[in-house]
Design a protein around this nucleic acid. Sequence first.
DNA 1: CCGGATCCCATCAGATACTG
DNA 2: CAGTATCTGATGGGATCCGG
Lengths: 120, 120
Amino acid sequence: MTLDSLHTAGRCGAVSGVLSRIGDKWSVLIVMLLSTGPRRFSELKRAIGGISQRMLTLSLRGLERDGLVKRTVFPTVPPRVDYELTDLGRSLCEPVQAIGTWAFENYAEIERARARYDAG
Amino acid sequence: MTLDSLHTAGRCGAVSGVLSRIGDKWSVLIVMLLSTGPRRFSELKRAIGGISQRMLTLSLRGLERDGLVKRTVFPTVPPRVDYELTDLGRSLCEPVQAIGTWAFENYAEIERARARYDAG
DNA sequence: CCGGATCCCATCAGATACTG
DNA sequence: CAGTATCTGATGGGATCCGG
C-alpha cells in the first residue's frame, strides 16, 4: 500500500478503524485463543486471566458485532454459550500473527530503546 | 505463532505491548506517512489533519522513545525539526501494511456485519 | 516553527453486586 | 453459567495560552 493509496478511497479510515478494533487491550488475545477452536465464556475468562467479566463481555460483543466472532447459545440449564471465529475472523489471524512475530523479534530492541531514552 | 508459544517466553506481553503502541489513534498514520521519507513537525500536522499539536507531540515522543522514529533538531531560526523512521520503524511497516491490506479488503464486510447486528 | 504547561471533559476499565 | 447494572478511579484527547 502506497502513501497515495492510503489517502484515497477511505483506506485511511479503514486502517484506523480496524486498528482501533484489534488494538484494544483484549481483542487480539481473544482472537488468538479462538483461532484454535471454539471456547465457552468461562473458558475464555480462565484462559485470559486478568480480564474482568465486564470487559470480556464487551470485547466479545464488539467482535461479534463486527462479524469476527460467532456466538452460539445453547438453551440448556445451566446455560452454555460458545464463541468461535467466523471466516472473517480467521482471515484476520494471519496479519495479526505477522504483527505478533514482529513483536516477538523486536520487543527486546524496543525495551533497550526505552531504557536508553529514559536514561538520556 | 501457535497458541502454546503465545503463552511462553513473554510473547503474550510482547504482542500486547506492541499493539498498544501502534494501536492508538495516530501512531500508525504517522509511521505510514514517514515510511515515504522524513517530514517536519508542521508537515506531519498538516498531512494528518485533525490531530492536535499536543497529540502529535505526544505520539512522536512515544515513537521516538521506542526507537521507531528518529528526531533531528536543526539549530536554526526559526527552529526546524525533522522526523524519520529508524530501521526498526521501517521494519514495522511491513506487518502494519499487511493489516492495512486486510483492512481495505474486508472493511466493507465489517460494515455490513455491523449494520446487520445493529438492525437485529 | 516547535512544543511545553495547564485546564477540562468524555470515554474507559476495574470492582462489586445482582439476575435468568 | 453467563451475563447485566452501577459506581468510581484512570486515561485519552481537545483547546488554549505561553516560551525558546
